[in-house]
Amino acid sequence: MDSPGDIGVSRRGLLTSGAACAAASAFPASASSKEPIAPMETPPTLPVQLKVNGKPAELTVDTRTTLLDALREHLHLTGTKKGCDHGQCGACTVMVNGRRINSCLSLAVMHDGDNVTTIEGLGTPEDLHPMQAAFVKHDGYQCGYCTPGQICSAVAVLDEIKAGIPSHVAADVAASPAFSEMEIRERMSGNICRCGAYSNIVEAIREAAGRQA
């Protein structure tokens, strides 16, 4: 150890001493280096059958593979985006059995037999889903990376309002929710758009909702 500010190194990895503050002496073994655990010879894999955008898909995946990575890396359906991989952004939103979820926080093997709808299943560039068309018309996107998640969420949000699922902004949670901009903003809040297209996205959803109604 050269100075009190330095850190001693033990055979177990990083050890702090009086690092930068007095409290640091309470840290016997800072975790810079994890204890290596002998890796398994071959990681377990399992077969899984999905129905993706109406088409059956049979995969054999590492048990660790998320639904998101199964879609993007195995099925090459890259429309579903990985923005954070931790359920903090919503870019990976897809619908499973009709409900929107973050596909990054779900294992593919947990979805055996499930029906998955991704952005690719909603429409094509030549034949846009009404929600996709509304996003184009109202410029409800900029860089485009959160956009598939926003659109999948938006489609699901309209269904959730119809199904009477309450939200945080309801004055009376016992009452049936009504379509309003406040409701849309709250329900869409799990989809972050750093480009800041929110105001336009709400316009797009309002138009798509009008068309649906």
Partner: peptide, 19 residues
């Protein structure tokens, strides 16, 4: 004008660097 890349972006067909 609507963005000309809009149909690609809104349908998930615009390829980003990892895709």
């Amino acid at each position: 004008t609507d963005r000309i890349d809009g149909p690609l972006k809104t349908t998930g067909r615009a390829p980003y660097a990892y895709e």
